[in-house]
């Protein structure tokens, strides 16, 4: 049982090397991104100053899709190769992805108020994000719904794969639905031509969010690995106590638990 968790040590060693770089890169990129987004970029000719919301809204939406893709990849790895770290990686990724989906929804709604005059419009992109948010919530809820944490991870992995196959279908259907019910005077998000002065802050914040993901992912992974080891230790302690009831030292271990 413990042997299975022997390879996290290599992962933790790697994480120790990456983490400071991720931290520095995130902070620098985010500072630069904020500077360009708020100070050093022109207002849009159509949307005025509100275009600045785009520099955090669109990267959040990208991160939402990026994290769901990662979730599907880790789930596939967990199912095919039964790699114990893959399940933990899914657990470490899901809350970050759900948070970015939530942020994309909130900033989209705040952007919608000056653009459309209401806080919420059943725009195809916002609606798809809304559905994606529920896919994340389902994944997280299923993970924690079982007494056996590993069983929950496996069930959630299957759900993530099913959801990932369905995401393009859902996206297509919501676009279809939206064209049927399109109100005439809706200004589209992100017109065809994004000026290069807008591209700089957009890419900077997008990269900063990626760095933030790596940084926080490593921290979450440390927590998850420690949790998994705790579970393995508890199981082995119980087994030891059952096998050698006579041994006093094991009896003390079981008592301490």
């Amino acid at each position: 049982m413990l042997n299975r968790f022997a390879n996290p040590i290599r992962f933790l060693r790697l994480a120790d090397q990456i983490q400071p770089w991720a931290a520095i890169l995130t902070l620098v990129l985010f500072a630069a991104g904020l500077y360009f987004a708020l100070f050093n970029s022109p207002p849009d000719y159509q949307q005025g100053e509100t275009v600045r919301i785009m520099y955090i809204h669109v990267p959040s939406a990208w991160m939402a899709l990026f994290c769901y893709t990662l979730l599907a990849i880790t789930s596939g790895v967990a199912m095919i190769w039964k790699h114990p770290l893959a399940n933990l990686a899914g657990r470490a990724t899901a809350p970050i992805g759900a948070t970015f989906t939530f942020l994309a929804l909130i900033t989209g709604s705040i952007w919608g108020k000056p653009m459309w005059g209401t806080w919420w419009v059943w725009d195809a992109r916002l609606t798809s994000m809304f559905i994606l948010f529920f896919l994340y919530l389902g994944y997280i809820a299923l993970q924690d719904a079982f007494d056996n944490a590993e069983g929950g991870s496996k069930a959630a992995a299957i759900l993530a794969l099913v959801g990932f196959i369905n995401v393009p279908i859902i996206k297509f259907s919501v676009d279809w639905w939206n064209t049927l019910h399109q109100p005439a005077s809706v200004i589209k998000f992100s017109g065809p031509a994004i000026h290069s002065t807008m591209l700089t802050p957009l890419l900077l914040t997008a990269l900063a969010f990626k760095g933030y993901y790596v940084w926080l992912f490593l921290i979450n992974m440390r927590g998850e690995i420690a949790e998994a080891r705790c579970r393995a230790l508890q199981v082995s302690q119980i087994q030891n106590a059952q096998v050698a009831k006579v041994a006093t030292s094991d009896a003390r271990d079981a008592h301490a638990d």
Binding site: L34, L38, E49, T50, R52, I53, I56, H57, S60, P95, I96, T99, F102, L103, I106, T107, I110, W111, K113, P114, Y212, W215, L216, I219, N220, R222, G223, E224, A226, E227, C230
Partner: peptide
């Protein structure tokens, strides 16, 4: 609109980070 959306994003990201660090130290 602009300041509140930037504020919310920064606040939520910092909050999630603190939750992660707390989880790590606890476990």
């Amino acid at each position: 609109f602009i300041w509140s959306s930037y504020g919310i994003v920064i606040f939520v990201l910092i909050w999630l980070f603190i939750v992660g660090v707390q989880f790590q130290t606890k476990s």
